[in-house]
Nucleic acid binder design. Sequence first.
DNA 1: CTCATTCATAACTGCGTGGTTATGAATGAG
DNA 2: CTCATTCATAACCACGCAGTTATGAATGAG
Lengths: 114, 114
Amino acid sequence: MPADAPPASPARDQVFRALADGSRRALFERLCREGELTVARLTDGAGISQPAVSRHLAVLKEGGLVEARPAGRATFYRARADRLAPLDDWTREMRATWHARLHALDDVLRRMDN
Amino acid sequence: MPADAPPASPARDQVFRALADGSRRALFERLCREGELTVARLTDGAGISQPAVSRHLAVLKEGGLVEARPAGRATFYRARADRLAPLDDWTREMRATWHARLHALDDVLRRMDN
DNA sequence: CTCATTCATAACTGCGTGGTTATGAATGAG
DNA sequence: CTCATTCATAACCACGCAGTTATGAATGAG
């Protein structure tokens, strides 16, 4: 019998969704590499407008992947790479069940009768 | 100086995109747990129409996360959980640079002058 | 006080995409 | 041979979303 399916947590959904976009991943990468950066600084490197950057950062923040630190008229953003855990957990679980299945007996039996 | 940004491989893009959708992840999960399944079988469990399932499987296949094995009028799909590697690689790299940054001296200096 | 800078939000646009139904090709069953 | 099943594809629709420009609030500089 197959194990229960995982609850499909909304937290995981948000993380996957946040990282689905390349521009968002690029922003996250820069924050991981260069530490805290203001929106203006991030906008310089990215090839998109400042409002686009702001909205991407908002999505990342909703996913918990980024934190904002307002300082005067500037706002510094920093990455929270530790919040990538849901992603790791999911892949680990997928690989685990998949690998278990590869060695399972009934899988062999299932293959035998096409 | 910051390390070079990764090349943003299209392969990684496809994997992230494929897993961005919840229905797609659910299909992949079932294939990991239950092994090879036909489209009809997959359609039963999912809450969506058969064409929708077929197209999701096509996206997963483009990302290399799934393989098709035609058998008569049926087509069996199986997961390739090992193809989740690009995802792991990326998260590992992000965490690595992020963690390195947390311990870097100039990060501390940067924080000192807001 | 005045002006420039920084950022977020609103309003809009175009496109990608996830869903549907309809259809047809391929194939096994009877 | 005929009919049912399985699947993929086409055509269509609605919505979400990534991008833009415009705008305004907040704040530091002079």
